[in-house]
Every structure is written in C-alpha cells, then in structure tokens.
Design a protein around this nucleic acid. Structure first.
Lengths: 342, 342
DNA sequence: TTGAAAGCGCTAACAA
DNA sequence: TTGTTAGCGCTTTCAA
C-alpha cells in the first residue's frame, strides 16, 4: 500500500500538502498542485491507512452496535427476525454515512466496554439496556450514545451526566390496543405469552393487564404464559402451554415468531387457529406475514426505528447536542388471519 | 485512556517491559516486575489502543465478511434467514477467536476492496463470488481468503496465484434428490422456482434438470418459474406464477421463504398445499419450519458451514497453507407437511 | 502557498 | 533482566 510520505516524495512536495489535498483543505494550495496530487492519487489508487488516521486524529469512524445477549435464551441472536431486520437498516445507514459498523455481542458488558474503548469507537448504539448496564456504559464511555428499546428508571437517568436519548416504541399501548381489539372481537379469556417480563416485555405485559382491568375482566398470574425459551426447550415448552390454552379464547404473544410456533403447537393439541382460539403476535416481522394463517399482529416500523437511531447518533457525533429525551414510535394493529370473531 | 508509556513512567520502568508483560512475553522478566505490572494494569483498567497496535504490528485482528449485494434484488440482505443465521455463527466464532468482524456489503467490489485495504483486514470471507469479482479480489488482496458458496470457473481458479478455498454445498445433488423424492411420491409435472440462474441457483437448477432427464421426463424452459424478486414485485410475481402452477403436481423452490410465500399464493389461487400441489423449499431455515404447512425442504447444516468457513480462514491467518480445495457439505431431504403422495 | 517536525500509542530490534 | 530508540502512516501546528 502506498503511503502519503511516498507520494510526497514522488511528487517532490511535503506530506502536509498531499494530506491537505486528500482532505479537501485546498484553500491554500495552488490549483496546479491540487491537480498534480489528485491525478497521482488516483493513478496509484491511494487508500488511507485508517489505523494511522485513527491514531493521529483520534477518531475511528467506527460506530459500535451493542447487543447484550443471554446465552440461555438466544443461541443466535442475529437470526431473530427483529434483530436481523433492524441491523440491516442500521448497517446500511452507517455505511452510507461513511462510517463502519462494529458489532459487540456479549453477555458481559465490561468486556464490551473494553472492546469499545480499545477501538476508540466514535459512538454507541445500545439495544435493550437495563439499569445497571446502562450505568456502566455512562460511567465509562464519554462519547455519544443512543439507546434503542430501553426502559431505565428515572433515578438512573438522573445519574447520567450527559444526555439519555432513547428510540423506543409504544410497547404498553401496543398490547393494550391488541387486547382491546381481541375483546371487541368477543373474546373473554385472554392469555399473554412471553419469555420474560423485563424491559420491553414488562411494558407489553403491563398494557395487557391494563386493557383487561379497564374492561373489568378478571385476570391473574395464571394468564401469563411463561415460555421457557432455552434452545431446544422451546418446542416442549410450547406444547405444554398449548395444553393450558384449552380454556382460552385468545393468546397474545410477545413476538410473531412465538405466535407462529404457538399456532402449530395449538393445532397439534387439537385447537384450530383461529376457529377455536385466536393468536396474535407482536412486531410485524416476515415470519408472521408469510406463515399460514398469517398472524394478526402489532405492527412497528422497524426501518424507521433503525434510521432514527443512527440518524440521531450521527448528529450527536457531529456535535449536535440533545437533552434527555426519547422518540417513541407508534404501533398499529394489523389484522390478518389468526384472529376472528367469537 | 491510560497508555503504556504512562504506566511505564508511573512504575518507573520501560515501555518494553510493560508491553512484554501485557503480551505474556515474560521469559526475561523477573517475577516481581511481572506482578507489579499486572497489578497496576488491572488497577487502572488498562485497555490497549488497537489502532496503535494495528499500526505498529501491521495486523488488525479484523476479519472482513464480504457480501456483494444487489439493490434490485435484496432491500435488506441481512434479514434473509440464511444470511442472518450464518452471520450469527460467523460473528460468534470470530469473537471467540479474539478477532473482530467487519461487514462489507456493497454492490461495488472495488469499493469493498478499498475499505478492506484501508482497515488492513487480516482475512476475508467472501460470499457468492462470481468470476470477475473473485479475480478482482485475488488481484488486489494478498492475505487469506475463504469463499462460501462460490462457483467459479477452472480457468479463473488457475489465474489465482495463491490458493482458492471454498466452503460449499451439494447444491446440484440437493435439488436432484428433491426431484427424485417428488417423483417417487408420484408427481409427474414439476416446476423449479427461483429468482435467478447464476451461482448456487444455477447448480440447483441443473440438479433439477438432471433428475428429470434421468427419469425420462420431458421438461423445458416453461418449467422454470422465474421470480421477479424486486422489492414489492415479489408478491405480484408470486401471484402470477401461482396461476401458471395450475397444471403442475409440485413446485420446488430455491429457498424456504419463497416456498412459504408461494404456498400462500397458491392457496389464494385456489390450490391447496399439499392436497392439490406439493411445494418444496431449500436450505431448511426457520420460516419453513414454523409455517403451516411446514415446508418439506433440502436441509443444509448452516452452523457447520459457518464454523468451517471461519475455522479455515483462522487457520490460514495463523499461517497454515491450503492447496486449492473445497469442502462440500452434504444435503438431505427433510420431509414435512407441504408434500404428499399423488 | 508550502514544508519541517512533533506526536498519536504501540512494537520490536538492539544495546546495555 | 531491563531500557533506548526507531519506526508504523497520518495529522496538525508552526515556521518559512
């Protein structure tokens, strides 16, 4: 790889001049010089050494995308439809802005933060942060950070010295609307199926409860179907839950994939969807749309979420400052074939 | 961020010693010094500056994963089930080996190669190379390269000065077996649905033809269902093809997702699957398994493919040399609910 | 308008 | 066993 120094030698000028032309700082460079340099540059196909640039300019043009995973839950988190879809748009936005994406996936936030520091990452996109991890990040990382789908407590937010920016979703309202919709369809007993009740899923569960409360329907712990989502456990777990579903009119799942799998489990248990029981999903991802019956779901605009997240982060990197604030995207019900009137 | 120099100053020793301890080159360092350094290191939470390390040692610990995409075909290639799944295992393997993954997705191979050079990427994993792009890579990139699912001509391979290593699949045999299976089920007229006939899909189409030829079945261009897979076009295109499918007993699709969508299109056109017509997919990805009817498919071991690809690349990076060679993974038929006896 | 030189943080050859 | 020093390729300040 040819270096600036070598180019300067060949052209018999200083590295400063070459560097200036490369970066378009040409106010004080003669037209002739500019052209000589430019011509030579693309003759030899000059490519900057980004490590050197990083070192000298103290910026990496890397944007870190942080996903704290859980081995016991996800064996391959990148293949979750929501994740792969939003990552696709994020990657594209980062690339088009002239930055590079580096993925940090780990169970250990400290490990992630060390790597982020080692690469001198220019900004961070954090998925699904929880209180203590968020705190760790804000303690150790002094550059722009944008959170996605993050619920952290007021107290923790106040501990942040700089701004907390989150791109989120009406999770609570999403399930509230879903349950209201099911109620309107004439369903009486409704269950909520999820693999945990923290973060996003806690909010979704809250919306479920509120809708039932407001409608004056009794409900309790037994209406929460907790999925054991360990690698293989999931199908057995689904089969178990399908048995419990016998007395219900509808089950609202926290994701479309779960809705698809649960639909199969129900039918295997002799319950037709939607004839015997309605099933709803959440997120509006591909699997729900192409399965049969197509899954009625709570839609969210994943592309927009990704664009907003990166857009905001990029603006922060470019120096714009944000107060503590959030952008909360809307949800809407997409009616398909897995639900019907009772 | 604290530097080695600063640590050396604090501990009143040379940077060499500190650096040596950090890298475990402790043969010539006294036990006492080792311990003093180690203690200080984790007291201050030292994190190396990778840019500096990269610059000095001329290696980046970055592995580039190159996917040349086609805007007209994939609006979000990361969300294709095969891609997201193999990327998940690749990312994990890279991370566990102490490397970093950088994704290079573009329509323009030259652009990709510039970025690869700029980062001084230690090795490359190339997906779905075609002759001329492969040639460009081998011309400009002098470090380890492993291809995945790549078919390039003998002549081009011979132009490579160094080795051509490919991790592939029995694509041709996969569809050959699939068609044989459908034939055995008593199907007479079988179509092949795909979005193109190059690379992997060309081989899959060849297998389709060979099976029919060997069985003495007539077949022709009209049995090739070409999907117009442009963003929105896909559903209309599927609807069109569903009409053409009326006279057929079975349709073999080049992917599970297509099989799912086509199944829906067929039913919308009044054709029941598998009662009126059988449908098969390829790859054995999640959507096919969780849709209903579950898609009978040609299985491939995606995890193994990813592991082999990275494993091989890592060994090349560590200096092991490989002759021109390929590892071709096996396929097998997974019988599910979208096919039945005629 | 151009150039010299210091320095970013780290490695490694060589000297002590 | 430890230290000195010259780079790696680039940016940027300051001088010419």
């Amino acid at each position: 790889m040819i270096t600036i120094k070598e180019i300067a030698r060949q052209l018999d000028m200083s590295t400063t001049t070459v560097s200036n032309v490369i970066h378009g700082k040409t106010k004080e460079v003669s037209q002739e010089t500019i052209e000589r340099v430019r011509a030579y540059l693309d003759k030899v196909g000059y490519v900057p050494n980004l490590a050197a640039q990083n070192l000298a300019a103290n910026q990496s043009r890397i944007i870190g995308v942080v996903i704290k995973t859980r081995k016991d839950r996800y064996m391959n988190i990148l293949s979750e439809p929501f994740v792969s879809r939003i990552l696709g748009v994020i990657e594209q936005e980062i690339r088009e802005a002239g930055y590079f994406m580096m993925l940090y996936i780990s169970e250990d936030m400290m490990d992630i933060l060390n790597k982020v520091a080692a690469w001198n990452t220019d900004g961070l996109l954090l998925f699904w942060m929880v209180d203590d991890d968020a705190l760790r990040v804000y303690k150790r990382y002094r550059k722009p950070v944008v959170c996605v789908d993050t619920y952290i407590s007021r107290e923790v937010i106040h501990q942040f010295e700089h701004s907390f920016v989150n791109i989120g979703l009406e999770d609570e309202k999403g399930t509230y609307d879903a349950v209201s919709y099911l109620l309107k369809l004439g369903h009486q007993r409704i269950a909520f199926l999820s693999d945990d009740r923290s973060g996003v899923n806690r909010e979704r569960y809250r919306g479920f409860c509120r809708a039932l409360d407001e409608a004056g329907k009794e409900h309790g712990e037994e209406d929460y179907f907790e999925l054991n989502s360990g690698k293989d456990g999931i199908y057995e777990s689904m089969a178990q839950l399908a048995k419990r579903a016998a007395g219900y009119d509808a089950v609202l799942c926290c994701s479309d994939v779960y809705a698809c799998i649960f639909t199969k489990a129900l039918e295997r248990a002799g319950l037709g969807v939607p004839t015997d029981i309605s099933v709803m999903g959440f997120d509006d991802t591909i699997p729900g749309a192409i399965s049969r019956p197509a899954i009625t779901t709570v839609h969210q605009d994943i592309e927009k979420k990704g664009e907003l997240a990166i857009g905001t982060l990029l603006r922060m990197i470019q120096g714009e400052s944000f107060e503590n604030d959030q952008i909360i995207l809307k949800t809407s019900i997409i009616e398909r074939e897995s639900t019907c009137k009772r």
